[in-house]
């Protein structure tokens, strides 16, 4: 099986975010990490390769900093990497991101493409499904299990409220992977060493530009959400805070 994993670099979960001057994006001087569901997508691809042999290729779009995501993936066992490298990729909407990926892999032949089910920054939950449509491939979303079958694959979709469903589908296909589908591995020292010699292809924006259109949606402004609740902050030493909380539980919440 030849599997492509689409990965994204996002601000770290507890990174304090500040708006930039235009108030249409964040200041980029924060710490970044791999988008969590994408890490599970990579892990699943590596496991499929270990079972069925083949190749795992990772792809990301973003400025130079995002190469770190590819480096980590190669250290964990991915075979090669494709980097759509340009700060301009950050501002693309989901359709254009998918178009850029489709253009970058037009000469490749994958059996499967994995993405995380959504990103922790935009949270569109769209790029994988759009990519499937652009390629003309079937897709399935929020996947918790993948088994090879005679005619293709059988996947387990997570539905809402604790429900699941198995779906049989032909290959090639796009799957969006849910966090928790597997247990993540760590990169080994040998893996980190080997990663340095693995092939990495750089794709400049100009190479995929002909495939892109103008964004079909526009962020007018980004802002700190207005609070809808009147939150009361309780302060003091741990002992004092505990006393105040107990007092609220007794007199306001009335559960004591």
């Amino acid at each position: 099986m030849k599997i492509l994993v689409c990965m994204k670099q996002v601000p770290q979960k507890d990174a304090p975010l500040k708006l930039n001057e235009s108030s249409a994006w964040i200041r980029e001087d924060v710490s970044y990490e791999v988008n969590e569901p994408d890490a599970y997508a990579l892990e699943e691809a590596l496991r499929q390769k270990e079972k069925h042999s083949g190749e795992v290729v990772v792809i990301t779009a973003g400025p130079a900093r995002s190469r770190q995501v590819l480096r980590e993936a190669l250290a964990k066992g991915a075979d090669r990497a494709i980097h759509l490298e340009d700060p301009g990729f950050v501002g693309l909407d989901a359709v254009n991101t998918a178009r850029a990926f489709a253009a970058a892999i037009k000469d490749e032949k994958f059996d499967l493409i994995f993405t995380g089910l959504q990103s922790d920054d935009y949270g569109y939950a769209q790029t994988g499904v759009i990519l499937a449509e652009l390629l003309g491939w079937p897709h399935a979303t929020i996947i918790m299990q993948i088994e090879k079958s005679d005619s293709g694959i059988r996947v387990k979709r997570e539905l809402e409220a604790g429900y699941f469903q198995f779906v049989d589908m032909p290959l090639p296909a796009v799957l969006t992977i849910q966090s928790g589908i597997n247990k993540l591995r760590y990169a080994t020292l040998i893996g980190i060493k080997q990663a340095k010699n693995k092939p990495q292809r750089k794709v400049p924006l100009a190479e995929v530009q002909p495939a892109l259109g103008s964004n079909m949606q526009k962020i007018e402004r980004l802002y700190i959400p207005q609070k809808t609740k009147n939150t009361e902050f309780l302060e003091g030493s741990p002992g004092e805070v505990a006393k105040k909380l107990a007092e609220k539980l007794r007199n306001e919440v009335r559960v004591l």
């Binding site: 708006l19 964040i26 079909m216 980004l222 959400p225």
Partner: peptide, 13 residues
């Protein structure tokens, strides 16, 4: 956006 830390007003183009 960003897991609820920020909000965005988005329009169609």
């Amino acid at each position: 956006m960003f897991q609820g830390k920020l909000a965005a007003d988005v329009s169609f183009a």
